[in-house]
């Protein structure tokens, strides 16, 4: 059991020892190890996304009473790989009037921001790239950088549909960041720390979803909007804005946006299970990182379910819902938590 539990941490320690044995200086060994960790993360993310896209297509097919991909490999599981290869081979079109610099940078920035989130997201016990005391703050602030990438893409495309989608994305994501941050505040107040490892450790006996149910619900709704997933997929809105900021993108650049969206989805779900559902805690017959991913995948499935059931909400109602409902409720939750803490201490 211990071997599986410490599979990744042990591997890391072994590589470090090996590098020291090669008489490399300490700092160089640490840098190489960090580099390898990032490589692993990117690998995990890409494999994860390929699985997720297949899973989403299968699940949406199940919800809509059709088959979904079923030709390539058992259950169509190689379909996404084939699609990725196809996208790589497609012509890369940059519109003549586009702002070329912004247009090219936007997808790269979106994916870099998405992968940056994994620097602090815990994947299991002691399995974070960096574990520092402001990791939650880092998560929230980096997550909001994605808005900028979407806006760059929308503005750079020089297309009214893209611009409208980008404007919507900015309005929506800025509005929903507020309740998102407030709902996490309740948890932070209880643990007194912004560090993920401490927040998870504090849930050894009771998960925070039972202490902070309101915060969980507001977090979940706000996260749906942050991720631009249905019913809040306003910026894309393929039936209205054709595809919002992604309208002019083709081939691999478009795929990068797509990749980043799913990367964000996994990050937010990992975060959700770490903050509200006890993170890596779970019965010991499975290693901690497995529990982490099982919980995260559960939330991913819930996101899929919601997206494929509900219609898209209207933009003004979306904004109203954030400012008139979610923000007051999450603020009230902060107040309630404060009062509760005063009473029980």
């Amino acid at each position: 059991m211990n071997v599986i539990e410490n599979l990744f941490t042990g591997l890391g320690a072994m590589i470090y020892d090996f590098l020291i044995w090669l008489t490399l200086p300490d700092w160089l060994a640490a840098v190489i190890l960090l580099f390898l960790k990032w490589l692993l993360i990117i690998l995990v993310v890409i494999v994860d996304v390929i699985i997720l896209i297949w899973l989403e297509r299968k699940i949406s097919g199940y919800i809509q009473q059709r088959l979904g991909p079923n030709r390539l490999g058992p259950g169509g599981c190689f379909q996404t790989i084939a699609d990725t290869l196809k996208l790589m081979g497609k012509e890369d079109i940059i519109p003549r009037t586009a702002d070329k610099v912004l247009f090219v940078i936007a997808p790269a920035m979106f994916i870099i921001v998405a992968v940056m989130l994994y620097a602090v997201v815990p994947m299991g016990k002691d399995m974070m790239i960096v574990d520092f005391d402001l990791s939650m703050l880092f998560f929230i602030s980096v997550a909001s950088l994605g808005t900028l990438a979407l806006f760059m893409g929308g503005w750079g495309s020089d297309n009214k549909w893209s611009l409208m989608g980008a404007m919507r994305a900015v309005a929506q994501m800025i509005s929903y960041e507020v309740p998102l941050a407030f709902s996490l505040l309740g948890v932070v107040m209880i643990t007194g720390s912004l560090q993920f490892s401490e927040i998870v450790a504090a849930q050894e006996n009771i998960w925070f979803v039972f202490l902070q149910p309101i915060a969980f619900v507001t977090y979940f709704i706000a996260a749906t909007a942050e991720l631009n997933r249905g019913p809040f997929d306003m910026p894309e809105a393929e039936q209205e804005l054709t595809a919002g900021p992604y309208t002019e993108y083709t081939g691999m650049r478009w795929a990068l946006f797509f990749l980043a969206e799913y990367t964000n989805l996994v990050a937010v779900c990992l975060m959700c299970s770490a903050v509200f559902f006890g993170g890596w805690h779970g019965p010991a017959f499975l290693p901690s990182w497995a529990w982490m991913f099982i919980k995260a995948y559960f939330f991913i499935l819930v996101f899929f379910w919601i997206k494929w059931t509900l219609p898209r909400i209207r933009m003004d109602k979306l904004m109203e819902f954030s400012w008139k409902f979610l923000v007051p409720v999450s603020l009230g939750n902060v107040l309630l938590t404060g009062v509760g803490l005063m009473l029980f201490r």
């Binding site: 949406s60 809509q64 009473q65 059709r66 019913p231 997929d233 209205e240 509900l310 219609p311 898209r312």
Partner: peptide
């Protein structure tokens, strides 16, 4: 109508 408001499942049904 379902498709246009984003509820693709309605279309499938």
């Amino acid at each position: 109508l379902c498709q246009d408001v984003g509820a693709t499942t309605g279309l499938a049904y």
